[in-house]
Amino acid sequence: MIDLAAKVRFLSDAGSYPHAASFVEARETHMSWVFLTEDRAYKLKKPVRYPFLDFSTLGRRRFFCEEELRLNRRLAADTYCSVIPLRCTQDGSLNLSGRGRAVDFLVEMKRLPRADSLDVRLREGVVTEGDIRNVGKLMAGFYSGSRPEVDDGILYLESLIREQAVNRAILGQPMLGVSDAALPVLDVADIRFTQLIPSIKARIKAARIVEGHGDLRPEHVHIGTPMQVIDCLEFDRSLRIIDPYDEINYLGLECAMLGARWVRPVLLDSLMARLGGRPDDEVLAFYGAFRMLLRARLCLAHLLDPVVRESERWPRLARSYIAAAEGELSLVSPPVRTLSRSRAGA
């Protein structure tokens, strides 16, 4: 039995790779190990099981590696190369050259210049309106070429309901330090959500829902030649079933969190020009609030890890996302605090 630690040691050695590599940088995430060489990146999924994913068996890890390759080739065909087996010979030696039985699988990718990532460019102030219009056109073309999810569109609404309940369960925990800020915003978001369910159902019926990217953030957008969007969410199809305006609005909000508020309207205008059917302001505001609360929750999830890193960072960042959610809900009257007090006195 080859354990994860042995695989990480092997893949952290530059001599393990069939192509020339003078160094390997290993990075650990919740779900994977990523090994970076000069021009390649290799992702090894951890044998983990969470409520939202299951990589616990070799067969499931192979399946989701193949899904990651398939899904990401939709928007980053030049980057995602192959799925390659990590093999073990009879004497217990690991290799990537095709000898022995497969003991795991890796997604092989070309390594993109970090300087071309949208988040880096925004921080450095070197993103143009033309760049953002090109991102909008790329995504609008992707959505317009996707099959409308009418039968499975209900998965989108079910996902919103499920994830909003988890948002409350996590953000409302006093021990995590943000419940005082989060609960009033959650209360209003829940009220708005209940009111807007008929509108969201109408968008599903009108074939406005597609299978999208699932995790569209600035760090996943590369302003290179060709422009590419990477790191699609592969482990749960229901989380990719989405309103394109929700996904694009979320990208715009993440850009706003980096100080670039001007990006969101440009993205939304690009989507409207290709797709039409922009949702009402109330629906768009709820989408934004929901995504910001979800991001706040994901920040706090770091505090629930067995080993907590940067413990002071996560509540602070969560509060900034909660404030952004409050701002979204206040875009349509009445404002958050007024609604919150009205409900408390009802």
Rank of each mutant, 00 (worst) to 15 (best):
Y80I: 06
S146R: 12
V127D: 07
Y143K: 01
G327T: 11
V34R: 00
G15I: 04
V34G: 00
L304E: 05
Q164P: 00
G214F: 10
G59S: 10
L106N: 07
V185T: 10
E219L: 02
F35R: 10
V126D: 12
H222G: 04
R316K: 15
L298R: 03
L112T: 09
L4F: 14
R208Q: 14
H30A: 13
L176G: 08
A181N: 09
K201V: 06
R297L: 10
V48G: 04
R27Q: 13
V103M: 09
T37A: 10
P51G: 12
P335R: 04
L58S: 00
M272N: 14
G288Q: 00
P198R: 01
I197G: 01
K137W: 04
A296N: 09
I191G: 07
R297D: 04
A273M: 12
F52N: 03
L294H: 08
V24A: 05
L233D: 01
L298D: 05
V103T: 10
G327F: 07
I84H: 03
D280V: 05
V178W: 03
R343M: 14
M1S: 15
A273P: 07
I242V: 15
S159M: 15
V229G: 10
R192Y: 00
F64N: 03
F55Q: 07
D269H: 11
G276T: 08
I2W: 08
R62E: 15
P198V: 01
R278V: 06
I2A: 07
I248V: 15
M175D: 14
L4C: 06
S146A: 15
A256T: 13
P184K: 12
T79S: 14
A115Q: 14
G130M: 07
G177F: 05
A344H: 12
V283D: 00
F193C: 03
M272I: 08
A344E: 15
L304P: 03
E310R: 09
W314G: 10
R62W: 04
R203T: 04
A323R: 11
R123H: 08
R99F: 12
A20W: 09
P113K: 06
D152G: 08
L303P: 07
L298Q: 10
R343E: 11
E163T: 07
S144R: 15
L284N: 05
N95W: 00
I191M: 14
R147A: 15
F63V: 07
W314I: 08
Q173G: 06
K46N: 05
V263H: 13
E66M: 04
G98R: 04
R240I: 00
L294Y: 10
N134H: 13
R291L: 05
V107H: 06
I170L: 14
V307E: 11
K137N: 11
E312L: 14
F63M: 13
L183W: 06
V83N: 07
K46S: 06
V83Y: 08
A182Y: 03
D116T: 12
A318K: 08
F52Q: 03
G125F: 12
G145E: 03
L293E: 01
K110S: 13
P306N: 05
A206P: 07
A324H: 01
L118T: 11
S270R: 01
